[in-house]
Amino acid sequence: MSGVSDRSDCRVILENVSLDFPLHSTAKLALMQNQRGVVPPTKDADKLIMKNGRIKGVHALRDLSLTIKSGERVGLIGSNGSGKTTLLQVLAGILPPTKGRVTITGRPTSLINIHLGLMPHATGHRNIMLRGLAAGQDRDTIESKREEIAQFCQLGDFLELPVSTYSAGMRMRLNFAIATAFTPEILILDEWLSAGDQEFKKNASMRMREFVEQAGILVLASHGPDMLLQNCERGIWLDAGRVRQDGGMKEVLKAYQAEKAGKK
């Protein structure tokens, strides 16, 4: 998980990855228990890990294999609870898989939690420094990028104020600006990017394109078809923790939307 000398060496390989979320609660499918104490199968039964009538965990990812090479722009789709965020966390090296192997070559930068990476009480400027340090940059590099970050997020004098006074959109801009300023090798984004206004989305798309042209990897999870079509050329459809379809963004999106429409 170290940086690479040549950006075109960036690679993420998942081999038969399964991930179970453990639950340390006493959640019980009590209502569904019949007289003999046997739990009848429910429609979610295959998603849950049961033991003695208690829910012990959730299967989030199941036997997933995929390879993402440098220069690829991947869009993740799937309904809520299909495992998108979990997969992003695995790709970023945050969650270790329960089974299988994950090989990450290159330094991942992830924007998965909108509140993360920003210290609410510190000013925007201070946050640029803190976030940069956490990303492994030295003080001089961060200083040299400060102007560019301020320019991109267009927060102006608000950078002198604590981040706690920012709106969600402003936080997102700052967060995105910082995360992308240090030319990440592997950029992992969760859906919240769609919280930006039109102009910001356009700028963000441009920036992501520039970056992928420099042979980085982009993985973006979103529900917004425009967002995906604009930024990704490869689409992966996740369904109940498995890859349902992997192919061109357009085709995958079409198939996904067709099924959603069919269900209604």
């Binding site: 970023a92 945050i94 939690n113 993360l116 990476g117």
Partner: peptide, 9 residues
């Protein structure tokens, strides 16, 4: 927890 769940420091 927020940091641990979203960065790989």
């Amino acid at each position: 927890s927020a940091w641990i769940k979203s960065t790989n420091l």
